[in-house]
């Protein structure tokens, strides 16, 4: 974490609204882009609402952030993803008519070593395959949407995903056996 991020984090913990504004200014563009990507075709106001929800969650849950496990940016993006997925689900269900569908919580993050191990495996993929994996598993895009964006056939996307998964499995199993930490 950079010195600036550390400072922002400490100020957020102290409840500083100025720090909140700085966080929005600093991370807003990437959160906005990610939210828009997950929401797909959505009204501008809905995207903004979702981005605001993200920062509100960050503000509320800053105590859960552990600087030893991830960067502040990762923490914020994780909340952005889940806020956007919740937003997408709400809009699909229309409609808030069933209060049973509560927002999903972001899963607890695993430790840094494990993250590095997986990141290392992901880095071994080609840029295209990595992008497809990210779009599919992190941004929850449908095969159809990915195929359109990457200008590939749906079948090609499926096949690439399948090969990438096989490769990741092998790499993760190997690194688990060797206790590899990069």
């Amino acid at each position: 974490m950079t010195a600036d991020e550390t400072k922002l984090y400490q100020q957020l913990r102290a409840g500083s609204e100025t720090a909140l504004a700085q966080v929005i200014g600093h991370f807003g563009p990437v959160v906005y882009a990610l939210t828009k990507k997950v929401l797909g075709p959505a009204a501008e106001a809905d995207v903004e609402e979702c981005v605001s929800e993200t920062f509100w969650r960050v503000w509320q849950r800053i105590d859960q952030y552990d600087p030893n496990r991830s960067t502040l940016r990762t923490f914020i993006l994780m909340h952005a993803k889940y806020a956007a997925l919740d937003g997408r689900r709400y809009s699909r269900r229309s409609r808030d008519k069933d209060p049973c569908f509560l927002p999903q919580a972001a899963p607890p993050m695993v430790d840094t070593e494990e993250r590095q191990r997986v990141q290392h495996a992901l880095d071994s993929l080609s840029t295209l395959d990595k992008k497809i994996i990210y779009l599919r598993y992190y941004l929850d895009q449908s095969i159809k949407v990915i195929a359109k964006e990457m200008e590939l056939s749906e079948s090609a996307v499926e096949t690439r995903l399948w090969r990438s998964r096989q490769k990741l499995r092998v790499l993760l199993d190997e690194s688990e056996e060797r206790g590899l930490v990069t």
Binding site: T74, F75, P107, M109, V118, Y134
Partner: peptide, 10 residues
């Protein structure tokens, strides 16, 4: 992948 949170380079 889910349990790892968001990769930094995403």
């Amino acid at each position: 992948l889910e349990s790892l949170g968001i990769p930094d380079d995403l």
